[in-house]
Design a protein around this nucleic acid. Structure first.
Length: 257
DNA sequence: ATGGCGCCACATTGGCGA
């Protein structure tokens, strides 16, 4: 079972690239973030023609999440239960016995922004919810854009970024709290190249200079981590014309999990 | 040097992302 997560930064603009990604990588399921589409504009017909069922939760201009799957999507839920939030950041569904939680975690903007405490509180609510979800669904994956680079090795220039949003200690502590629930950072289950990132600034030739951060992650519960046979970042999608500023992340799960 | 790029919107500039 091949799973992917990709912040597409506008599904309207990136649909041709997504269709190319589906055709060439053949993932079983994909979690999308920043679709930036109202639900009535979601390209369900195009994705159905490509062989994918879809569930989605969108809004105008900002945020928006979706799950694509070649097989049935069951028990769909939107948002974090009990949390009032107009921002469409979470959608979950069960695919072939695996619970997929698609997340677009808040950016936070800067440490002195009111969006920063919102981000920290959002992570606390996510952790509270996932703690229960892991009991309900032992085979659970949380995929998406976390907007947190967990360690200095996930940052192209740790000294330049020290203490800023996306790398600050309170944010990293929230990320570690997710791991403490029993989730594994799939990327670190395997030997990986140094300076491996999932996001690069559009400006200043960030990608060409590999000035990036690893902020998109696939976290796996213990049973899925034990069956995971590979994890990678798909840098090729970032090399295309008019790319998203994020690259997709991928995992392969053995069928015998 | 707080810019720079890209996307979106009741657009021709500003908000936001990260």
């Amino acid at each position: 079972m091949k799973l992917a997560a990709w912040n597409v930064n506008s599904l309207k603009v990136r649909l041709p690239q997504l269709l190319d990604f589906l055709a060439t990588r053949q993932p079983d399921a994909v979690c999308l973030q920043e679709t930036k589409l109202l639900d009535e504009a979601f390209p369900a017909a195009e994705l159905a023609a490509a062989g994918y069922r879809v569930v989605f939760a969108g809004q105008k201009t900002y945020n928006g999440v979706a799950i694509l799957s070649r097989s049935n999507l069951a028990d769909v839920s939107v948002g974090i239960p009990g949390v009032e939030d107009e921002q469409k950041r979470v959608i979950a569904a069960t695919v072939d016995g695996v619970r997929l939680v698609c997340v677009y975690c808040p950016n936070g903007q800067s440490l002195d922004s009111e969006k920063y405490p919102y981000k920290l509180a959002w992570f606390d609510a996510l952790a509270d919810w996932l703690k229960n979800e892991l009991v309900r669904y032992p085979r659970l994956a949380v995929l998406g854009d976390y907007n947190v680079a967990p360690e200095d090795r996930d940052v192209h220039d740790p000294e330049a970024w020290r203490g800023s949003v996306l790398v600050s200690e309170p944010e990293r502590e929230r990320f570690r709290k997710l791991l403490a629930l029993g989730l594994k950072d799939s990327f670190r289950l395997f030997e990986q190249p140094e300076k491996a990132f999932t996001w690069w600034d559009y400006r200043m030739m960030g990608f060409r200079r590999n000035h990036g951060l690893r902020i998109d992650h696939i976290l796996l519960s213990e049973p899925l981590a034990a069956a995971c046979t590979g994890a990678a970042i798909d840098r090729d999608m970032r090399k295309l014309e008019r790319p998203s500023d994020h690259a997709p992340v991928l995992v392969e799960i053995g069928m015998a999990c």
